[in-house]
Design a protein around this nucleic acid. Structure first.
Length: 477
RNA sequence: GGCACCUUAGCCAAGAGGUAAGGCAGAGGUCUGCAAAAUCUCCAUCUCCGGUUCGAAUCCGGAAGGUGCCUCCA
């Protein structure tokens, strides 16, 4: 039985979809005013994992993720750069795809954009006005009246009167209550605008998600996801808009991923620790990045540091090394056979994932399996049959396809990782091979003293070598 | 001020009231010309103080430290 932590109830609940095996999931996508950063990547990896596992568990999933392609920051950024806001958002959507594709993330089934749903947004706003939950102001904006919705604050655990007393921002005079938020914003001269019953303007932030999620998934749907920071006000406001407009409960399960910090601090422009996915991928292989994110449970805060990534890189190499050996034996298989150990591994995987998608526990299961494989593959006496080896390979692929790792050819990915390391360490391949060849010559004439000297030379550059039956291989420490 | 969250070995990181998964680093074996890789063995009573319980890292109360949100944020 799959259990999911629901931010609404603040505990793990049995996952029972509204419509049998059909699951609707909406994840707040990015506001495309800039390139995606590694915090976005974490969120996307988490959702990808969840969607993959739901499918793996036999659910038929409709996954919707929006692009918010109109808002204050977008307008500001476009003005700064002196380009049309559409040019800016298109550019960043492209960057988003590039980054997420590199990380091996599946595209959602539906990817609605706010600007393509102005009609739906306007009609939802109108409905809210008609029902008395919203009011237009003299300047042509429309606000949601938070006091009218008695459930306001139920997701974030806040009470209206407490929030009002804690208000620190300037109160706009046209608002009836300082916490009222804009559903529709009157446009200022020169700003992007759409016709509406209240004059020319644009949607407020929040409303696009209510309008688009209910359009594609129905008035009530199963899972709504996003980063922790969206709980308030974004998701709280989405609930208010949707439930008041439809009169029905909105999302059943609220899933929020934990934040990512960089070297212990929140990413921010002022701290100069803002890392885009693009930059991170120059330093580390996408699979390393992905595995790094999966080795911490999605709700736990994760600290991004180069030291942590280096550890992760080692682990990925370890897995693929073993996989290479395994596949050599599996190559002779007639038909994959899943032995007890392989079955046990799959069970551990399911148990961990059923427990609120606990990929960190899966990591432990992976290590236990690989340790076993290394132990057993090394000698003829203990080695599983080729069919069993193929069974292991198959089981690993099964798990890997949910996690999005360990699906590649060992040699291929090892080389890719090496290429990245070479750039990172600023060492040339020829230089390394030259020293290795020198050492080889010394070894041939049994001049071990000089041979060891060559090895030390490499060690100083951060490279260790392994003498194998197939010759000398090298890797970064 | 309000609301959330976090605190597990040198580091990273799971822990569903029943007596601490896993990884890195470290120590010691096996293997090796020597190494490396791989493997084996060893390595924590869970920030603190109370309480509930036969029994708590896990529940309750309090304290300390940290983080996030309350204005844009995955």
């Amino acid at each position: 039985m799959l259990r999911i932590y629901n931010s609404m109830s603040e505990k793990k609940e049995d996952f029972v979809p509204l419509n049998g095996k059909n699951v609707g999931i909406y994840a707040c996508g990015m506001t495309v005013y800039d390139k995606p950063h590694i915090g976005h990547a974490r969120k996307e990896v988490a959702i990808d994992l969840i969607v993959n596992y739901l499918k793996y568990s036999g659910f038929s999933v409709t996954y919707v993720r929006n692009f918010t392609d109109i808002d204050d920051k977008i307008i500001a950024r476009a003005n700064e750069r002196g380009i049309d806001f559409r040019a800016l958002t298109e550019e960043n959507i492209e960057a988003f795809y590039k980054a997420m594709d590199a990380l091996g993330l599946a595209r959602p089934d539906i990817e609605p954009k706010a600007t393509a749903h102005i009609g739906e947004i306007i009609s939802m706003v109108q409905k809210l006005i008609d029902k008395g939950f919203a009011y237009p102001t003299s300047d042509g904006s429309v606000y949601f009246a938070v006091e009218k919705f008695k459930g306001y604050g139920k997701l974030s655990g806040r009470k209206l009167d407490e929030m009002i007393s804690g208000t620190r921002f300037d109160v706009e005079e046209s608002k009836q209550n300082p916490l009222d938020f804009a559903l529709w914003k009157a446009s200022k001269p020169g700003e992007p605008k759409w016709e509406s019953p209240w004059g020319e303007g644009r949607p407020g932030w929040h409303i696009e998600c209510s309008a688009m999620s209910t359009k594609y998934l129905g008035e009530s749907f199963d899972i709504h996801a996003g980063g922790r920071d969206l709980i308030f006000p974004h998701h709280e406001n989405e609930i208010a808009q949707a439930e008041c407009a439809t009169g029905k409960p909105f999302a059943k399960y609220w899933v929020h991923n934990g934040f990512l910090t960089v070297e212990g601090e929140k990413m921010s422009k002022s701290l100069h620790n803002f890392i885009t996915v693009e930059d991170a991928l120059k330093q580390y292989h996408p699979e390393v990045l992905r595995y790094f994110m999966l080795s911490t449970h999605y709700r736990t805060p994760i600290d991004f540091s180069m030291a942590n990534l280096k550890d992760t890189e080692k682990k990925i190499c370890y897995f693929y090394n073993t996989l290479k050996t395994l596949n050599q034996f599996a190559a002779k298989a007639a038909k994959p056979v899943r032995n007890e150990k392989a079955a046990e591994f799959i069970n551990e995987f399911k148990e961990a994932m059923d427990d609120d998608f606990n990929s960190a526990r899966v990591v432990a299961a992976l290590f236990n399996l690989f340790k076993h494989l290394n132990e057993v593959l090394v000698s003829k006496k203990t080695r599983p049959t080729p069919d069993e080896c193929a069974g292991f390979a198959e089981a690993i692929k099964e798990v890997g396809s949910v996690l999005g790792v360990l699906l590649r050819d060992s040699d291929e990915i090892t080389n890719e990782i090496k290429e990245i390391q070479i750039v990172r360490y600023g060492i040339s391949k020829d230089e390394i091979e030259e020293i290795i060849n020198k050492r080889k010559a010394f070894r041939a004439e049994k001049n071990f003293e000089m041979a060891d000297k060559m090895r030390e030379e490499l060690l100083e550059k951060g490279i260790s070598i392994q003498d194998t039956p197939n010759g000398t291989e090298w890797s970064f420490n």
